Amino acid sequence: MKNFSYLFRLIILVSACISLQLSAGTPENGLDIFRKFSQKLQSLKTVNYHYTREFTYPAEDYHSKSEGEMYIDFSKENDLVGFRYQYKDQDGFSVFNNSGFFETSAADRTIHIKNRMKAADFEGLSALYNSIITLRNILPAVIGDKNIVKDVKDTLIGKKHFYLLNFTMQNRFPNYLGTGFTATTEKITFYNKLIVDRKSFMPVSFIQLKKGSRDINRTGFSDIVVDPVPPSDSSWYYSSYLKEYRQEEKNVPKIISMGQSAPDFTLDKIATAGKVSLHEYKGKIILLEFWIRNCSYCINAVPELNRLHRKYDPSKFKLLAVNTTDSRKSIEQFILKHQVNYDVLSGEETVNKNYGISAFPQMVLIDKNGVVIYSGDLNIQVLDSLISTNLQVSS
């Protein structure tokens, strides 16, 4: 791997070679280099690279360095934030699969799961700090902002020439996703330096400096492979790792107990534009399946649940699949791809909280009086028997 301290010293020594100023009256070819770099990142569909993150704060006698392997998928179906990723380092690995996020600890063999992500949740995820994702998203804003001073230099590292793209910002810096800028609470001038390969137009390093400070933040990108062999499908599901890692027990809710009254809810019906409430089915045996899109067990459950749906009289039995995590578009894609034949509902996550759902899939069977008679993992034999017995009793 490259020695980034050495790399930085070389940049400082030789970066004054060829300057293409981009301020008023500047040559257009300098700005074109920014554009070509941005276009290259926008064209990526999948990419794998070795990622290095290094902080050096001399005044505080602080130095931190971490590195790992990053895989990013920018496919169109990744609609929440425009990508999904897997990152692995010596401490464990983390996965964002377009809806949920999970990370493992190599030290204590635990897995932490967050089933519903929002854009704000990505701030602080170390694998995303000044990453290719950040650059891909922020460069169009940098190029289009006339208040950001930009220039391009030719720099020599070893015997190889690279582009050095500089842009200076006042009192703000890119957020982790690169979808905007984070404002500082004090006046700070940030000098941003991007080392770009002249042939591939892929990034080599992203360096951030502050005026009047010797602090250096830098991320490095090496061993870049465009359109690499993708990870296995099962690697995107946390359920694939539960035999090797135990789920973190902190604040894990307990699923609703047998004998309790099933909490009512009103959710959107995916097949139509309407809503449906649980109490509408009172007098029937109701099976609720709580599921998420990126779950191998949930995928494998579909044929068995389709069979249950076909087996019993719809006037006496109702199967409802509840997904309060994924977007409507993602759910519709899942239904089509896996040929789901029963009703699927979506809506507020409070339903999961009311039923104590912390893993997927989870099943809750409710009798005709609205009382829970089973709760827990998918066990078709047990559920089939209970449904059959209770339908005979209610006949």
Rank of each mutant, 00 (worst) to 15 (best):
G25D: 01
S43V: 15
T46N: 05
G25C: 01
N29V: 15
F34P: 02
S23N: 11
K36W: 04
S43D: 02
I33D: 01
Q21H: 08
N48C: 03
A24L: 03
D32K: 09
S38T: 10
G25P: 01
I33G: 02
I33P: 00
S38Y: 08
Y49N: 02
Y49I: 08
L41R: 03
T46Q: 13
F37V: 12
E28K: 15
Y49H: 12
N48S: 09
L31D: 03
K45F: 06
V47E: 03
Q39T: 14
S19Q: 03
G30F: 04
N48E: 14
R35Y: 07
I18F: 15
G25L: 01
S38W: 00
K40A: 06
A24R: 11
S38N: 12
S23P: 05
S19Y: 06
T46G: 15
K36H: 10
I18A: 02
F37G: 06
F37W: 06
I33T: 13
A24G: 10
F34E: 00
V47W: 01
Q39I: 14
S19K: 12
S38I: 07
F34S: 00
D32M: 12
S43T: 10
G25W: 00
Q21L: 04
E28F: 06
L31C: 05
K40M: 11
Q21G: 06
S19V: 15
Q42V: 03
L44S: 07
L20D: 08
P27E: 12
R35A: 09
S38C: 13
F37P: 09
Q21N: 11
G25H: 00
S43M: 14
G25Y: 01
S23G: 12
A24M: 04
Q39N: 08
S43N: 12
G25E: 01
L31V: 04
N48W: 02
L31S: 05
L22K: 07
T26G: 10
L44M: 05
Y49E: 02
